[in-house]
Nucleic acid binder design. Sequence first.
RNA 1: GGAGAAGUGGCCGAGUGGUCGAAGGCGCAGCACUGGAAAUGCUGUAUAGGGGCAACUCUAUCGAGGGUUCGAAUCCCUCCUUCUCCGCCA
Length: 425
Amino acid sequence: MLDQRLLRDNPELITQQLGRRGMALDLGPLQQIARQERDLEQQRSDLQAEGNRIGKAVGQLIQSGAAPSSPDVQALRDQGNAIKHQVASLEEQEKALELQLREALSALPNLPSPDAPDGRSEADNIEIKRWGSPRAEAGLQEHWQIGERLGLFETERSVRIAQSRFITLMGAGARLERALISFMLDLHTSKGYCEVMPPILVNSASLTGSGQLPKFAEESFRCADDDLWLTPTAEVPLTSLHRDEVIAAEQLPLKYAAYTPCFRREAGSYGRDTRGLIRLHQFNKVELYWFCHPDHSAAAHQQITADAEAVLEALELPYRKVELCTGDMGFSAARTYDLEVWLPGAAAYREISSCSVCNDFQARRSAIRFKEGKNTRLLHTLNGSGLAIGRTMAALLETGQQSDGSVRLPAALVPYFGGDTIGAG
RNA sequence: GGAGAAGUGGCCGAGUGGUCGAAGGCGCAGCACUGGAAAUGCUGUAUAGGGGCAACUCUAUCGAGGGUUCGAAUCCCUCCUUCUCCGCCA
């Protein structure tokens, strides 16, 4: 959510910055509403002050012996009643404006950071670096072919259990998924992240707080009888972990690593990535999340990205780091790096992590502040995948495939998986 | 799921219609005392929004929302949460 004061005082800045995302906005009407609302508030509170004076005067009169039914008291009562009605009417108008304003503001995305590169789409993203030596021989299989051949997951039967875009991991496949989760959590907690296992059903307030609602309701699964949704990412419960809190400055940064399943409807992606582990309605992810001081969020963004990169490097998976342009960034982000892992079978880089700094955007929506001396200020939040588990498995299968049909796993994973090869012999 | 009790400031806790944003205590901060500290004393210590360069000032907030009243922490209604007992359960 953007600052209402910014809307009142400098809507041109918002228009200009959201223009970098490719939005054309006229905020004039909204600014009018914001100013009207402020004026109404002023009128209303002046009236209330008058009402309070009258109330006290009545009390004093009665206490000093005036009969409650005397004309003096009655006159004041009448005045009080008149004010009460005026206040009620002003309040009603004010609430209506406030609602309009909040709805409009909560549908606006974050302002991009000055450092974020301008651009219209994915095509304008900027490659920052490459790591590792991608395999590029001919005849490499895609992960779903390897998985099916080695019996690592069930595709057809999963449709019977749920529907398409769900997967059932079997045997070594299930074991590898579990190994990856443990490996990633251990790696992150060894660097000072606090491990979290949050609820994966979240309420509307939580989804609004991190930016998924109101605009992206169709992306999440909703429980019919409750105000609960299946979380699309651990970013949602982690943001709300400290919703409506004031945190002591000395405690910052708070760094969390959470493993959760994630649920996404993937509306509008029919026919894309229908095979294997790339695009599922349910997938596992280890998410990194920081609450930090505004002065340190830029450095924190580099760090959280490096922490995600460390997973790929420990798993010996070649990747590239891409900075998203303003036109391709997510709703809540001010600046984003994507990590794209090399899939030798598909011969393509695929997104496996997205690391964003949201500045105070989520903090304002979720009322998460910190106390610095006498001042209470909004803090900054960051999130990054560290990493998406299914896509990591896909990359491991394609990267580790050997001519005998087996898959060799990186050394770091051996203690977790309990072996260095899948499908040997 | 059934029955009962309770939700007040960072914490504990008083307050059942009138200058109550709220006694008292703890905690915290500053000052005094001290060689230094403890103890003690004094002072200060909620959040959000509006106005003002500022000192300051106005409004709202005693779980949430509505109602009664000139006036509500206090009375009424609805909801939420927590606790206790019973039942059920991985």
